[in-house]
Simulated scan of single mutants.
Amino acid sequence: MSATRERVIGSIRREVLGHILITNESHAQQVLSTYQQHYNEHRPHRARNQLPPDVPAAPCCAS
């Protein structure tokens, strides 16, 4: 398995599965879908200077 996949699986385990008891497959799909949206639209990423992946660039500062 690649390092990227292992990193994503580790993030899911730490940030989601360690806090929520999954009751069935549809619940798991709902939880993972919600986490995917959070991960791509809101969660800061160090490699992107604390920007989420779906944000193209840092907002411009108004002087």
Score class of each variant (00 low, 15 high):
Ala57Met: 13
His27Ile: 03
Ser26Val: 04
Arg46Cys: 11
Asn40His: 06
Ser26His: 13
Val16His: 01
Pro56Tyr: 07
Gln37Val: 08
Arg5Pro: 06
Ile12Lys: 02
Ile20Val: 07
Val31His: 01
Ser26Ala: 12
Ala62Ser: 15
Tyr39Ile: 01
Glu15Met: 03
His27Arg: 03
Ala47Gln: 12
Met1Ala: 08
Arg14Gln: 11
Val8Ser: 13
His45Pro: 04
Pro56Ile: 06
Asn49Pro: 05
Ser11Ile: 09
Arg13Thr: 06
Ile12Asn: 02
Val16Thr: 00
Cys61Ala: 15
Pro56Arg: 05
Gly10Asp: 12
Pro56Met: 02
Leu51Asp: 03
Tyr35Met: 00
Leu17Glu: 02
Arg46Glu: 14
His38Leu: 11
Glu6Asn: 15
Asn49Val: 10
Arg48Trp: 04
Val31Cys: 03
Met1Asn: 08
His38Met: 09
Gln29Phe: 12
Ser63Lys: 14
His27Asp: 06
Leu32Tyr: 01
Pro53His: 05
Ala58Leu: 15
Gln37Ala: 11
Pro56Ser: 12
Asn49Tyr: 12
Ile20Phe: 03
Val16Ser: 01
Thr23Lys: 09
Asp54Gln: 13
Arg7Gly: 06
Thr23Asn: 07
His42Asp: 12
Arg13Ser: 08
Asn40Gln: 07
Met1Trp: 09
Ile22Arg: 03
Cys60Val: 14
Ser33Leu: 10
Arg46Asp: 14
Glu25Asp: 13
Ala62Phe: 13
Cys60Asp: 10
Arg5Gly: 10
Ile22Trp: 03
Pro53Ile: 00
Ala58Phe: 10
